[in-house]
């Protein structure tokens, strides 16, 4: 490849960010919106969050019940497979540990499911131990619909397609089942530090 466009440069990484930015990523101060489909608009009175599958009694919270659970403020870097990273993003949400508190299960895997039909799969271990939340607030405001509101999954240690927007629940499974993008070419696990973007990486 010999041709170079005179005067064209990639977006720059901010100085002092080395070590925080996974390989192949650049830092942005925007918050790009990427969607696999139209934004759902579910009224809160119809919203529930469920835990189903390998569990004795499925669990379900209405919006009011969900918001009555203890929540936390979370500050994390997030990394999108489309190569942008956003540092020190601030969220408010309920830890998955809180939602799974007291749940006994033989499941090792989870499929998170959302309004609009989107799904994504993860090992259950990646949702526990303070690594994942159901987030309803971003930057001190209610999470906007285009960014996944009223609530989205937040799993910052994996590429952000795993942080399913408009999440409605988790299905606990003994076997691993690829979600939407995992079945269509993205990597099954998605560790940004190993650049696991696509199937076979």
């Amino acid at each position: 490849m010999s041709f170079v466009s005179r005067g064209f440069h990639r977006r720059h990484t901010e100085p002092g960010q080395e070590g925080r930015v996974p390989p192949g990523q650049y830092v942005t101060t925007d918050f790009p919106v990427l969607s696999a489909g139209p934004t759902p608009h579910r009224p809160l009175e119809n919203w529930t969050f469920s835990i189903t599958g390998e569990i004795d009694e499925p669990l379900r919270w209405t919006w009011d019940e969900f918001r009555a659970l203890p929540s936390e403020n979370i500050t994390k870097d997030i990394h999108c497979v489309t190569k942008w990273s956003k540092l020190d993003t601030r969220w408010e949400g309920v830890s998955i540990d809180t939602l799974l508190d007291g749940v006994e299960t033989s499941a090792e895997f989870v499929v998170a499911f959302s309004d609009g039909g989107y799904t994504t799969n993860l090992p259950l271990a990646d949702l526990k131990g303070g690594k994942a939340w159901v987030a309803f607030g971003f930057e001190d405001e209610p999470l906007e619909p285009e960014h996944g509101g009223p609530a989205r999954l937040l799993v910052p240690h994996l590429y952000f397609w795993k942080s399913a927007k408009w999440v409605r629940g988790l299905q606990l499974r003994e076997d691993d089942e690829p979600g939407f993008w995992e079945g269509y070419g993205y990597h099954n696990y998605g560790d940004p530090w190993l650049e696991q973007r696509y199937a076979g990486d």
Partner: peptide, 8 residues
Amino acid sequence: RLTAEDGY
């Protein structure tokens, strides 16, 4: 298609 010096 735009190409930067580093191949981007």
